[in-house]
Design a protein around this nucleic acid. Structure first.
Length: 433
DNA sequence: TCTGGGGTCCTAGGACCC
DNA sequence: TCTGGGGTCCTAGGACCC
């Protein structure tokens, strides 16, 4: 009989594993990847977890301790990680028909099959080995009748080496056992707030949560919580959007390495962010109607976070050219900035997106100007992706005070010919090379 | 000196309509 | 004494994910 399997493929400690690929001498060492500006930990190898480091720890606070354990730090190198993500995706797609990319290191597979559990295990193990051979990245598989249960099984396969990276829930009589040992806060869809609330009801395991009645769950955790509970019971209800589909909003924001007070510097930073957003918008062939701008002030001494201020500007027409977007963003920014205040972060979001082809004009609009901008930016995008560097006057590329601090970045080994790993031809090759 | 960034979905409440 | 009812759309903010 044909069965529907939901399978999640998830790369282990993805960013840290990618960094290790090119630095084999770090194989058994703690490796940590830092956020932009080398601020906090965003990924860590198992060895780094073992010495007590956690995702979210501030670099400057754990640096000394970590270095005692010979930890290697890296600034994040997204070009490199995206390239590996793409390679892994290709291998999965050549093996399975229904694949949804869920994040940079996760893919959901829907698999319709009458295979028995052992044959399914063989297939997943084979694909896992292909990925390991071709990219040197370890991927874990979890398979179950629902996506949420697949994520549960995936965690089991990651935590326990005996699974060899493949864990399948095929026998629903084993469901209770699997969920009774599973902390409710680790369930996909149950975050910090819900975990806290569940604690007050004395609910600690995924099993206890799943056994509550629908009305109670709906009341306390709304429709999302109810969906999670149903999935835990084995009823598939969760749908996800593939991240490769068109986005509904596009955001670019950045913390500054140093707080900025100068208005022109903030404007230049925001203009850069708008440009990035515009490029992404045009790449997915959308136009937007709203541009939101936000700024975050530098935090007072006794606080970690500053205050954040936000405003939204409606464009006169749906647009995706950087000139129109920048003009509106600057109007928004002007409303937010106060003299004498230092800012730590700024960002811009475009919302209310529709496909470019749906673009409608008002009767009284000067459409020739709008179309001129669109054509202009097709050309600018071409120039910028090939040889050139076309920017608006408000941007200030030679003096970007908001440039990242990235002191620990690895080379773009796989995407930049000048940065490919070099082999020293004077040294004799060993078998291990 | 120093603590990412980029998304999605849901809901309550307000505005507005008849 | 008593102060409609029902519907839609939009928005801000919260919770969650990686």
């Amino acid at each position: 009989m044909q069965k529907t399997w939901h399978i999640i493929a998830d790369a282990n400690s993805f960013y840290a594993s990618v960094e290790k690929v090119f630095r084999p001498e770090l194989r058994d060492k703690p490796v940590v990847v830092l956020s932009n500006n080398d601020g906090i930990i965003v990924a860590l190898s198992p060895e780094a977890k073992a010495i007590g480091l956690k995702r979210g720890d501030a670099y400057h606070l754990i640096k000394d301790l970590a270095q005692k354990h010979d930890t290697q730090f890296f600034s994040s190198n997204f070009i490199l990680y995206y390239d590996f993500s793409r390679r892994i995706e290709q291998i999965i797609r050549r093996n399975f028909e229904h694949v949804e990319k869920y994040s940079i290191d996760e893919m959901f597979i829907t698999y319709y099959s009458s295979l028995n559990v052992n044959d399914l295990r063989k297939i997943l193990s084979k694909v896992r080995q292909e990925i390991l051979d071709e990219t040197k990245i370890k991927v874990s598989f979890g398979a179950a009748p629902t996506k949420t249960l697949a994520k549960v099984m995936n965690q089991y396969s990651k935590k326990d080496n005996r699974y060899n990276g493949v864990s399948i829930l095929h026998d629903m009589s084993k469901l209770k056992t699997a969920l009774e040992k599973f902390f409710v806060g680790d369930v996909w869809g149950i975050g910090r707030q819900s975990t806290k609330k569940l604690e007050t009801y004395n609910i600690r395991t995924a099993w206890e949560f799943s056994q509550r009645n629908d009305a109670w769950i709906r009341k306390n955790f709304n429709i999302t919580g109810l969906r999670t509970a149903k999935e835990l019971r084995g009823v598939p209800v969760v749908q996800i959007g593939d991240i490769t589909e068109s986005k509904q909003s596009i955001l670019c924001s950045r913390s500054f390495p140093k707080a900025i007070e100068n208005v022109d510097d903030i404007r230049a930073a925001l203009a850069d962010f708008v440009e990035e957003v515009g490029e992404k918008l045009r790449k997915q062939q959308s136009v937007c109607r709203n541009v939101s701008v936000f700024v975050v002030t530098a935090a007072p001494k006794h606080r970690i976070h500053g205050d954040s201020f936000w405003t939204q500007v409606e464009l006169p027409y749906f647009a995706n050219d950087t000139i129109t977007l920048t003009r509106s963003a600057m109007i928004g920014l002007q409303l937010l900035l106060k003299p004498g205040v230092k800012y730590k972060k700024a960002g811009v979001t475009v919302t209310n997106l529709i496909p470019e082809t749906n673009l409608q004009f008002n009767l009284w609009q000067d459409t020739s100007k709008i179309l001129k901008f669109r054509t202009l930016y097709k050309k600018i995008d071409f120039v910028n992706t090939s040889v050139g560097y076309v920017r608006l006057g408000v941007q200030n590329p030679d003096n970007a005070v908001h440039a990242f601090r990235q002191n620990l970045k690895s080379p773009n080994y796989t995407t930049d010919i000048r940065q490919v790993p070099k082999i020293d031809m004077d040294k004799p090759l060993k078998d291990s090379d």
